[in-house]
Amino acid sequence: MSIRKKVTILGSGSAGLTAAIYAARANLEPMVIQGLQAGGQLTITSDVENFPGFPQGILGPELMESMHKQAERFGTQFVYDNAESVDLSSRPFKIKTSSDEIITDVLIIGTGASAKLLGLESETKLMGHGVSACATCDGFFFRDREVFVVGGGDTALEEATFLTRFASKVTVVHRRDSFRASAIMVKRAKENEKVHFILDSVVEEIDDVAAGEVTGLKIRNLKTNEITEHKADGVFIAIGHQPTTELFKGQLELTENGYIKTNGVKTSVKGVFAAGDVQDEVYKQAITAAGTGCMAALEAQWLLEAEEEEVREQKAL
């Protein structure tokens, strides 16, 4: 089926949904193509404590459900599907999902980012069998077990603290001796007696692929090159995220690290705007994603208004 739209939004995290709220309130009847992870990264976090307006914190999935409802209330149309390809070579732009083609005057990209993995063969083979990229999903299965968290950012330390609800011991493996995570997260993890740290170190290998389960880790100290073996029942990977820009390669200018290059929220193609983590190498917060989502919707509205004005003027001549 072919669908004609003024504004189409790719992604349903806080960037995409905020853009939808603004575009819908401007009567642009936006369509949101939700993507595989509807609701975005916040749907796999636990407590969100830094989103203004929630003094007691709010659960990530709840926050996203509320944003979804708010966007829906003003007439946003949601498609539960993934964009398979986009054609940005001429306006209107074309987007293909598994069942529809959407033709749109403006495209707002809020496809966000996905979790990076270590890149070990054993990691891939044991994914779902003791290796996980989602502590809130899988922590439950590690009651009274010993688990490791790899990484040193907010996600890693939040997951480490979260996992102490279930696991008997949580060890954080981090390649440096300082943390990128916020001070409050570091303090909370350090004060938790179940959380231990192995610093200046990386995971070299995850055992045991032959047994089809995680039994231990080989960890290399980057300063001494010494390799030590550790018993483990589970490993949670939290080493950061990569922007979801595969669809736009060769069509939009990207940065060296693969993010969409933006000026404000404008991309290299007129009529295409980008918001949230897909274009943000620096802040990567729910609130900054919401902020740029708002900016993208306003820019979209102004562009469409200016173009309509132009058409009217030409007709009047």
């Binding site: 595989l36 779902g128 003791g130």
Partner: peptide, 30 residues
């Protein structure tokens, strides 16, 4: 969950004639 050694959800298991044929974990497309 214990019998089928579930360690990650969502987990899909396809059974045929009472035996596990294959499994997949994580959110996947239609």
């Amino acid at each position: 969950a214990r019998t089928y050694k579930i360690q990650s959800i969502p987990a899909l298991i396809l059974f045929k004639d009472g035996a596990e044929l294959r499994r997949a974990t994580g959110n996947i497309s239609k």
